[in-house]
């Protein structure tokens, strides 16, 4: 039981550069939550199944619990905290709030990230159901979420 072999790690998160000493195998999820201090990204399973930890890594949607921090080196990360611009909610956040897309809210940050990724590149999946299939929600039955995504995409 030795001390962790931390290394200097740096990346850009929500437009700001960040660097710190992090174990290279530390889950990006933990680095974001514990080292960067942004807790909007959630852990629902730690096994890549639930999507609560979804973030963008160089513009691609990933499960941050599946990414070792060493593989985020020098990259751009966006989390739920990085979606609003100049204090204005992202349209996806707005429509989730209006349409009842968030109930208990624990899946919501990851769900919104996956939805934003789909809205930006609708060709990335054959339809909305496929694009969000990596994000489990136990509260909504997904119906209000679909409404919210459709409404945001129509804007």
């Amino acid at each position: 039981m030795s001390a962790p072999a931390e290394e200097k790690s740096s990346f850009v998160i929500n437009g700001k550069s960040w660097s710190g000493a992090v174990h290279p195998l530390k889950r990006l999820l933990d680095t974001i939550r514990e080292d960067v201090g942004l807790t909007g990204t959630k852990e629902g399973c730690g096994e890549g199944e639930c999507g609560a930890c979804t973030v963008f890594l160089d513009g691609q949607v990933v499960m941050s619990c599946m990414v070792p921090t060493c593989q985020a080196e020098g990259k751009q990360i966006t989390t739920i905290e990085g979606l609003a611009e100049n204090g204005r909610l992202h349209p996806m956040q707005e429509s989730f709030a209006q349409e009842g897309g968030a109930q208990c809210g624990i899946c919501t940050p990851g769900m919104i990230m996956a939805a934003v990724a789909y809205a930006r590149d609708p060709g990335s999946a054959e339809d909305m159901r496929e694009a969000l299939a990596g994000n489990l929600c136990r509260c909504t039955g997904y119906i209000r979420i679909f409404e919210a995504v459709k409404k945001a995409m129509a804007k």
Partner: peptide, 12 residues
């Protein structure tokens, strides 16, 4: 590829 995991898995 489409049926492996979900999009977040496919990108990694």
């Amino acid at each position: 590829a489409r049926e492996i995991g979900a999009v977040q898995i496919q990108s990694r």
